[in-house]
């Protein structure tokens, strides 16, 4: 059975904000497409910075990961084996580790010294000795410098990106706002519809600059800290190596 009640209406009216002018796209890509050549250049530059810095970040993270893993296995081999020649044989496969470079330098110095004094020991059973422990130490220090340089290579680019990218973005923004104000002067209208697209367009540059800079800052700090940890590991290894040499060859 159907009762014909009065139809119930509930009406919600909302006055539309109406702030979005027709014809201009609100998406970020639309903003970029409408922008001037200068700001496009700025954006392209920032994109290049971002691409290169991310390349460096990925590369460094990858190599540090490999170096850490190979250092761990190298130290494992180094501490378990009795002969340096055994360790030297392993070095070929653990080439990424900075400790391998130090070991190879120290070992080379050591063998050179031992070869120069083969006749020093009169008896065959006598222990071979080296002439200078400080020379081995110096060789280790040289190797350490080389390895640190290799680890730090390209990391400063991240610092450069972190400090320059916001400024480049700011330049693009300032330029865009200048253009926007010129537009105001020409049209003589301070209508928000005239001013706002230009300024929004200009602000994209700062946003992209920050987008490039923020990861660069974060990973610069992280990578330099990792390099510091590697350096302390290398110092530790140098002490250990020198101790073993002193114990066995003097």
């Amino acid at each position: 059975m159907r009762t014909l009640g009065g139809p119930l209406f509930a009406l919600l009216l909302q006055a539309d904000g109406g702030a979005v002018p027709e014809g201009t796209s609100t998406s970020i890509v639309g903003l970029i497409a409408d922008s001037s050549p200068i700001s496009k250049t700025v954006l392209l530059l920032l994109a290049l910075f971002s691409i290169v810095s991310w390349s460096v970040i990925f590369y460094k993270l990858w190599t540090f990961q490999r170096a850490r893993r190979q250092s761990a296995s190298f130290l494992d081999v180094f501490r378990r084996s009795n002969k340096f020649s055994e360790v030297q044989a392993v070095c070929r496969s653990l080439n990424e580790s900075p400790l391998v470079g130090m070991f190879q330098a120290g070992y080379t110095e050591l063998t050179a010294q031992l070869r120069q004094t083969p006749e020093a020991g009169p008896a065959g059973g006598a222990r071979p000795t080296i002439r200078s422990l400080t020379a081995v130490d110096r060789a280790l220090m040289r190797a350490s410098a080389v390895e640190l340089n290799k680890l730090e290579h390209r990391v400063p680019f991240l610092a450069t990106t972190a400090s320059i990218a916001p400024f480049i973005g700011l330049f693009g923004t300032v330029w865009g706002i200048m253009v926007a104000f010129q537009g105001i002067g020409q049209t003589g209208s301070t209508n928000l519809g005239v001013v706002a697209p230009g300024i929004a367009d200009a602000l994209v540059a700062t946003a992209v600059g920050l987008f490039a800079a923020i990861p660069a800052v974060y990973f610069y700090n992280q990578l330099t800290n990792t390099v510091k940890l590697f350096a302390s590991d290398m110092d530790d290894f140098a002490m250990e190596f020198l101790n073993i040499v002193e114990r066995n060859f003097t």
């Binding site: 691409i51 460096v56 590369y59 020649s85 470079g101 190879q104 050179a112 080389v146 290799k150």
Partner: peptide, 25 residues
């Protein structure tokens, strides 16, 4: 194993950076 004769040679060998930067780019 026959190591390189001089420490400097070893260090020069070690200065080569590991590959992979291009792939990361």
């Amino acid at each position: 194993a026959a190591p390189a004769a001089d420490v400097t040679d070893v260090l020069r060998d070690r200065q080569h950076e590991a590959g992979g930067l291009r792939q990361m780019a």
